[in-house]
């Protein structure tokens, strides 16, 4: 549910009162997402099978499909950065879906969670670029013509700084908006009004997680490929 409305009683508020930690709700729901993913990981690790079934099948479809997608776009180097990309998608997806459970709030509906992830992406793709190209990474900021280089340097710096901002605001705006719409529709017409929206928002939340993943992939591709 949307935390922006007056006194939303979510599970995290009750839990916070019981624990007396005074942490904001999105921290609890991020921990919940982490617990879900760690549990899935440990359960699956214990009984990996050659012929997948059930949960393993779902994860193999998602992870395998995303790996194909990354390798198709970046090339074989994509396998090196894939361990960063895929957990990003699944983590955001789980956090988004938690917002659909009544009484829960999506951790991504708070701008702090998204800013942290977007800055991680920003640092990571620059680190990958510097690791691969060394000092020559600056050529990515210079553009093709040498006497336009100072202007292009400024433009590229603005463009690169805008990336984490746009990543943050896109995810935050979409997820927060969906949470607020759910609450408002629930006030207007309980259950009947919200139920059709769930289908739309499952689509919307998956697409937002995928967009975050895909943009990270495009940025990593930009820092991995040769400067023009």
């Amino acid at each position: 549910m949307a935390a922006g409305l007056a006194h939303p009683l979510t599970y995290s508020v009750i839990l916070d009162d019981a624990l007396g930690l005074h942490l904001p709700p999105h921290v609890y729901y991020m921990w919940l997402a982490m617990i879900i993913l760690f549990t899935c990981a440990f359960v699956l690790r214990g009984r990996l099978q050659l012929v997948p079934g059930g949960l393993q099948n779902v994860f193999e479809t998602v992870v395998g499909g995303l790996e194909d997608f990354v390798v198709l776009n970046i090339g074989e180097e994509g396998r090196k950065v894939f361990p960063f990309l895929c957990p990003m998608f699944i983590f955001i997806l789980v956090m988004n879906y938690i917002g659909l459970i009544p009484g829960c709030d999506a951790a991504t509906a708070n701008v702090n969670t998204n800013a942290a992830m977007a800055l991680t992406v920003f640092v990571y793709y620059n680190y990958i670029g510097i690791k691969k190209w060394g000092f020559g990474y600056i050529k990515h900021f210079m553009g093709p013509v040498i006497f336009l280089a100072p202007l292009m340097l400024v433009l590229e710096i603005v463009s690169h700084l805008a990336r984490p901002l746009s990543l943050t605001l896109r995810l935050f705006g979409n997820i927060r908006g969906e949470e607020i719409v759910l609450v408002l529709l629930f006030i207007l017409a309980p259950v009947v009004g919200t139920l059709p929206m769930y289908f739309l928002f499952i689509l919307g939340k998956t697409i937002q997680a995928f967009i975050f993943f895909m943009l990270t992939m495009i940025y990593l591709k930009g820092s991995l490929e040769h400067a023009h």
Binding site: V158, S159, A162, L165, S166, L169, R170, F210, I211
Partner: peptide, 19 residues
């Protein structure tokens, strides 16, 4: 993929202006 590609275009314009 299509939705993702289309939805990414607008935000960068706003973000770059504000930066």
């Amino acid at each position: 993929v299509l939705f993702g590609n289309v939805a990414t275009i607008g935000m960068q314009l706003v973000a770059a202006t504000f930066i």
